[in-house]
Design a protein around this nucleic acid. Structure first.
Length: 902
RNA sequence: AGGCCCGUAGCUCAGCUGGUUAGAGCGCUACGUUGACAUCGUAGAGGUCAGCGGUUCAAGUCCGCUCGGGCCUACCA
C-alpha cells in the first residue's frame, strides 16, 4: 500500500497561480486506485462501514441523480474511512431487463431486423455486448466523480454469483409456498409484449368519454342503462351489477340482461362494491378486462371472456365483426353500431385515470394471463414492524406514512416478464406439463425423473434480483467473510422515486432471507431538477451530464454543490451558476494554501497545538476551528450534508480567509511577528482540508500533500488521515467575544469610510471610546469575562485594527467635535476625515437611520412596559431586551451628535 | 378519493426545541489591480416570511382554514 509522490514536480513547490481541477483530479483517482487504499478488509479488526451502490442500469450513462447519490455515498464512506473504520463502498450495475432489452431491440430495428428474427441466443449475445460498453462508461464516470469504491468486489445482477442467489431465492420462496404460478388478471403492456407489475403502471388523467348504453332486460320491454368508458369491452361482459340497496334495480335480481350485438345472457348481480352515485348505478361486468370486474366476478363465481389479446387486438370471442381489430378501432365500431341500433343512450365528456405503461407509454391492457406471483403479504408485515420498532430508520422520516400506507395495502407481486434479457425462471416443464422448480436443470431432471424438460421461457422482474442486492453482492447464500463482516450494511442512499420498487422489496427480502433489515438507515434524496426547478428529461432537453459538469467545474465543485443542496424532503434544483460558485470556493482554498506555503517559512503542520502563549488571532482561529469541527460529525450522522457543507464553507471563507489570513499577514510579513503564527496557519489549514476531504477529495489531497509536515498526520494520504473533531483546549469564549467586538468595530469603520465616500487611501483618524455608558453592556456580543473588557482588548489589538481599517491613527477616548460617529457592540466608533463635512446624501441617510432607530426604540419600550411580558418571559430575555434598548438609545445619541456636528 | 411536501430578498434555497435585528449563494449597485485569490476584496440596496383566523407575554417557527404549486398512492365503471 504505497502512495507515490504527489504530482508536483518538487515537493513543497510553489503552487501554480492557476487553479485547474483537471490538472490533478484524474491523477489522484488513478493513484488512489493503484495504492489499493479503497480495498475493504474481511475479516477486519476495524469496525465495518458498508454502503452498496444502488446499481445503475447498464442502459446508458449516469445522470446527475446518480452523481448526487454517489457524492453522498462517497462522502460518508470517506468520512468513515478517516474515522478509522473499515469501509466498503461496493460498486455494481443492474441489467435492467426491460430498458436494456428495449435499447437493443431499437438497435436491431435500425439494422432492419428484430429480436424474433435473430433469435434468443444471438439477441442475448448482442445485449451482453451492449452491457460491456455501457458498463465501461459508468465505471469511468464513477472514477471521474472520485468515488472510493472497492472495484475488486464489483458485481453485476446477471453475474454467476448473483444469478445463483436469484435461483436460490426463487426456489426457497417457491418451496415455502410464497411463489406460485397462476392465471390472473395482470397489467399487460401490448407495446412491450409482457406483463408488468402494479408499480410499472403509471396513472394518467385522460379526457375521455362516458358512454351510456342501454341493455335490454331478458323477456321484458324494460331496458337498463350502464355507463362505461370502454364500450369495446362490453363484448366480454358476463353480468350486470348494481348495489344491493338500490331500489331502482332490486326487482331485477334473478333476471338477466341481454348483451347487445352478441346477445349473451347477463345475469343481474347485487354487490355492495358498486357505487350507486356513479353513472346510472348500474355497471357492466367484464371480468377479464377490468380489475374491479375481475374481483367482483370472483366473488360471484362468474365466468369471463377474453376479447382482447396480447397485442391489444380483439379476439375471435369478440365476434367476427371485430376480431383482429385494434381495441381502439373496435371501440369506434361498437359505438357506431350501438348508435345505429338506438342503444346509445348518451355520451358525455369524462376525465378519468388510465393506467399507462411506465416504460413504453401506451395504455395498459388489463387481461388474463398465466404468470408467476410472489405473495409478499407476510414480508410486508415484517417490513412494517421493522419500521415501527425502529429497526429501520427512514431519513427524512416523513416517508414513514408512505411506507406504512403502501406496505399495508400490498398485493401479490407479478414477477414474471415475457422478455429475454434477465434471469430465466428456474422452472421446467415435462411432457405432461408438470412444473419442476429447481436451482438447475440437473436438479429439475432429478426431481422430474426425466431430462426431457423445457425451461420456462420467461424471465424475472429486474427488481427481483435488485431486492437481493444488499446481500447477494456480499456472497449470499454462501456464508462468506464479506457477509459476516459487512451485513447488514450501514446505510442506503437512494432517490425517493424507487422507495417501493427497490427499498421496500430489499427490506422484505432481507428480512425473509437473512432475518435482518439489510441496512440500518435509509436516506431518501430528492430528485435533481434544473435551475428552474423543472424535472430533467431528455425530451425537455434540460438534462445535465455529470461528465460535462466535471469537465467544466471539476468533480469537487460538483460534489460540494450536490451535497450542500441535499436538504431533507426537497428536490434538488441544480444550477450551473451555483457549481461555478463552489468552484470559486475551490479557488479560494487553493489560494489560501498558496498564501500559506509562500509565507510560513520553516513552519510545519503540528499534530496538536498548545494555545498557551499564542497571541489572540491564533487563539481565535483555533477556537473557531474546534467549534466548527465539533459541528460537522453530528450533521453527517444525521444526513444533514447541507448543514455540514455550509458550516465548512463559512468557516473557511469567512473566518479563515476573510479574517485570520488577513490578520496573519502582519505576523508573517515580519511587521509584527507573533509566536508560532505559521505553525498555527498550517495546522488550521491541515485540519480544514481534512474536514473538507469527504466532500472535496481531490483538491484537499492535492493541497494537503504539499503542506510541510503533513506526514506527522499520516505518512501517505489524507484519505487515511484522522477526521478532525473538537479540541476543547483550543476553545476560548473570551477570545471569541473579544474578536467579535473587534470585527464589528472594523466593519463599522469600513462602513463609515464608504458612507463618507472616501477613497481607500484617504487619510482617516480613528477614535474608539469603549468606555461605553451605563446600560450598554450585554450587547449582541457580551463580554463574558470581566477580566477582558472591550477597552483593554481593543487597545491590545490596536495594531491589528489599524492594519485592518487602514487608518492613520487610533485614539482611545472621546472623539473630537465634528467627527462622524456610531456605536457598535458598546463601543463608540468615530472617524475624522479631512475637512469635508457631511454631504446632502449622507445627511439624508443618517436621518433615515435615526428614524428607523426611533421605531425600534419605541417597540422595545412598549414591550418592556408590558407587565405580562415582564412577568412571564424568562429573565434572560427581559435583561436582553433592556440592554438592547439602552444600546439603541445610546446609538441614536451618537448618530444625532454626528448629524448635528456639521 | 387518500396521503405527503412546498409557498421566506430578482432567482435557487437555509432558518434546530417559538424570544423581538429573518440568513446564504447567485444576481444587482458603488468603490477598489493594498504582493493568496478579479474564480477576488470592501461597502450597500433588496423581504408586511402566500392569505385569514387561533394559541402565547412573544409566531417565519405551533394549531386550524383558504388560495397557489409539486409529488405519491388508489379497482369508481
Amino acid at each position: 500500500m504505497k502512495l507515490s509522490a504527489p504530482s508536483a514536480p518538487t515537493p513543497p513547490a510553489e503552487l501554480d497561480k492557476r487553479f485547474d481541477p483537471r490538472s490533478y483530479e484524474p491523477a489522484w483517482q488513478r493513484r488512489w486506485a493503484e495504492s489499493g487504499i479503497f480495498r475493504a478488509e474481511a475479516p477486519s479488526r476495524r469496525p465495518p462501514f458498508c454502503i452498496v451502490i444502488p446499481p445503475p442500469n447498464v442502459t446508458g450513462k449516469l445522470h446527475v441523480g446518480h452523481a448526487l447519490q454517489t457524492a453522498l455515498q462517497d462522502l460518508l464512506t470517506r468520512w468513515r474511512r478517516m474515522q478509522g473504520r473499515n469501509p466498503l463502498f461496493l460498486p455494481g450495475t443492474d441489467h435492467a431487463g426491460i430498458s436494456t432489452q428495449l435499447m437493443v431491440e431499437r438497435q436491431l430495428a435500425s439494422e432492419g431486423t428484430s429480436r424474433r428474427e435473430v433469435g434468443r441466443e444471438r439477441f442475448l449475445e448482442r445485449t451482453w455486448e451492449w452491457k460491456t460498453q455501457y458498463h465501461g462508461s459508468i465505471r469511468r464516470q464513477l472514477d471521474l466523480l472520485g468515488a472510493s469504491c472497492d472495484w475488486s468486489r464489483e458485481r453485476f445482477t446477471l453475474d454467476a454469483g448473483l444469478s445463483a442467489a436469484v435461483r436460490e431465492g426463487f426456489v426457497r420462496l417457491y418451496r415455502e409456498g410464497l411463489i406460485s404460478r397462476g392465471e390472473y388478471l395482470v397489467n399487460w403492456s401490448p407495446a412491450l409484449d409482457t406483463a408488468v407489475s402494479d408499480l410499472e403502471v403509471e396513472m394518467k388523467s385522460v379526457a375521455g368519454k362516458l358512454y351510456h348504453i342501454a341493455y335490454p332486460v331478458e323477456g321484458e320491454t324494460e331496458r337498463v342503462v350502464v355507463a362505461t368508458t370502454r364500450p369495446e369491452t362490453m363484448l366480454g361482459d358476463t353480468a350486470v351489477a348494481f348495489h344491493p340497496d338500490d331500489e331502482r334495480y332490486r326487482h331485477l335480481l334473478g333476471k338477466a340482461a341481454v348483451l347487445p350485438i352478441l346477445g349473451r345472457r347477463l345475469p343481474f348481480i347485487a354487490d355492495p362494491a358498486v357505487d350507486r352515485e356513479f353513472g346510472t348505478g348500474m355497471v357492466k361486468i367484464t371480468p377479464f378486462h377490468d380489475p374491479f370486474d375481475f374481483e367482483l366476478a370472483r366473488r360471484h363465481g362468474l365466468p369471463g371472456v377474453s376479447v382482447i389479446d396480447h397485442a391489444g387486438r380483439m379476439t375471435a370471442e369478440a365476434g367476427p365483426e371485430y376480431a383482429g381489430l385494434d381495441r381502439f378501432a373496435a371501440r369506434e365500431k361498437v359505438v357506431e353500431r350501438l348508435r345505429a341500433e338506438g342503444l346509445l343512450a348518451a355520451v358525455e365528456d369524462h376525465v378519468h385515470n388510465v393506467g399507462h405503461s411506465q416504460r413504453s407509454g401506451e395504455p395498459i391492457e388489463p387481461l388474463v394471463s398465466t404468470q408467476w406471483f410472489c405473495d409478499v403479504s407476510g414480508m410486508a408485515e415484517r417490513a412494517l414492524a421493522a419500521y415501527r420498532e425502529g429497526r429501520l430508520r427512514l431519513v427524512p422520516d416523513t416517508w414513514g406514512k408512505t411506507w406504512e400506507n403502501w406496505l399495508s395495502t400490498i398485493r401479490p407481486w407479478c414477477i414474471s416478464r415475457q422478455l429475454w434479457w434477465g434471469h430465466q425462471i428456474p422452472a421446467w416443464y415435462d411432457a405432461e406439463g408438470r412444473c419442476w422448480v429447481a436451482k438447475s436443470a440437473a436438479e429439475a431432471a432429478a426431481l422430474a425423473g426425466t431430462d426431457r424438460l423445457t425451461q420456462d421461457p420467461d424471465v424475472l422482474d429486474t427488481w427481483f434480483s435488485a431486492a437481493l442486492w444488499p446481500f447477494s453482492t456480499l456472497g449470499w447464500p454462501e456464508d462468506t467473510a464479506d457477509m459476516r463482516t459487512f451485513y447488514p450494511t450501514s446505510a442506503l442512499i437512494t432517490g425517493h422515486d424507487i422507495v417501493f420498487f427497490w427499498v421496500a422489496r430489499m427490506v422484505m427480502f432481507g428480512l425473509h432471507f437473512t432475518g435482518e433489515v439489510p441496512f440500518a438507515v435509509v436516506h431518501l434524496t430528492g430528485l435533481v431538477r434544473d435551475a428552474a426547478g423543472v424535472k430533467m428529461s431528455k425530451m425537455r432537453g434540460n438534462t445535465l451530464d455529470p461528465a460535462d459538469l466535471i469537465d467544466e467545474y471539476g468533480a469537487d465543485a460538483l460534489r460540494f454543490t450536490l451535497s450542500s443542496l441535499d436538504s431533507p424532503g426537497r428536490d434538488v434544483p441544480l444550477n450551473p451558476d451555483q457549481i461555478a460558485g463552489y468552484r470559486a470556493f475551490g479557488n479560494k482554498i487553493w489560494n489560501a494554501a498558496r498564501f500559506a506555503l509562500a509565507r510560513v517559512g520553516e513552519a510545519e503542520v503540528q499534530a496538536d497545538v498548545d494555545p498557551r502563549g499564542l497571541a489572540v488571532p491564533e487563539r481565535w482561529i483555533l477556537s473557531r476551528l474546534s467549534r466548527v469541527a465539533a459541528e460537522i460529525e453530528p450533521r453527517l450522522e444525521a444526513f444533514r450534508f447541507d448543514e455540514a457543507c455550509n458550516r465548512l464553507y463559512h468557516f473557511f471563507w469567512g473566518d479563515l480567509c476573510d479574517w485570520y489570513i488577513e490578520l496573519a499577514k502582519v505576523a508573517l510579513s515580519g511587521e509584527a511577528p507573533r509566536p508560532r503564527a505559521g505553525e498555527v496557519l498550517l495546522t488550521v489549514l491541515d485540519r480544514s482540508l481534512r474536514l473538507l476531504h469527504p466532500v472535496m477529495p481531490f483538491l484537499t489531497e492535492e493541497l494537503w500533500q504539499r503542506l510541510p509536515g503533513h506526514q506527522a498526520i499520516h505518512p501517505q494520504t489524507i484519505c487515511l488521515a484522522p477526521y478532525p473533531g473538537r479540541e476543547e483546549s483550543w476553545e476560548s469564549a473570551e477570545v471569541e467575544a473579544g474578536m467579535e467586538i473587534l470585527m464589528q468595530v472594523v466593519t463599522r469603520v469600513r462602513g463609515l469610510r464608504a458612507e463618507l465616500g472616501l477613497p481607500p487611501k484617504a487619510r482617516l483618524d480613528l477614535f474608539l471610546d469603549p468606555e461605553a455608558p451605563a446600560g450598554a453592556e450585554g450587547t449582541a456580543a457580551p463580554m463574558s469575562q470581566p477580566t477582558l473588557p472591550a477597552g483593554s482588548f481593543l487597545a491590545e489589538q490596536e495594531p491589528l485594527i489599524r492594519f485592518l481599517c487602514r487608518v492613520e491613527s487610533t485614539t482611545f477616548g472621546p472623539a473630537p467635535p465634528g467627527a462622524r460617529r456610531d456605536l457598535v457592540a458598546g463601543v463608540e466608533v468615530a472617524v475624522v476625515a479631512g475637512s469635508d463635512g457631511l454631504g446632502e446624501k449622507e445627511r439624508e441617510r443618517l436621518a433615515r437611520e435615526i428614524d428607523r432607530l426611533a421605531g425600534e426604540i419605541a417597540r422595545a419600550e412598549e414591550r418592556l412596559a408590558d407587565a405580562q411580558f415582564l412577568a412571564k418571559a424568562p429573565a434572560a430575555v427581559v435583561a436582553g431586551g433592556r440592554a438592547r434598548l439602552a444600546e439603541l438609545r445610546e446609538r441614536r445619541e451618537r448618530l444625532r451628535a454626528g448629524l448635528g456636528s456639521t
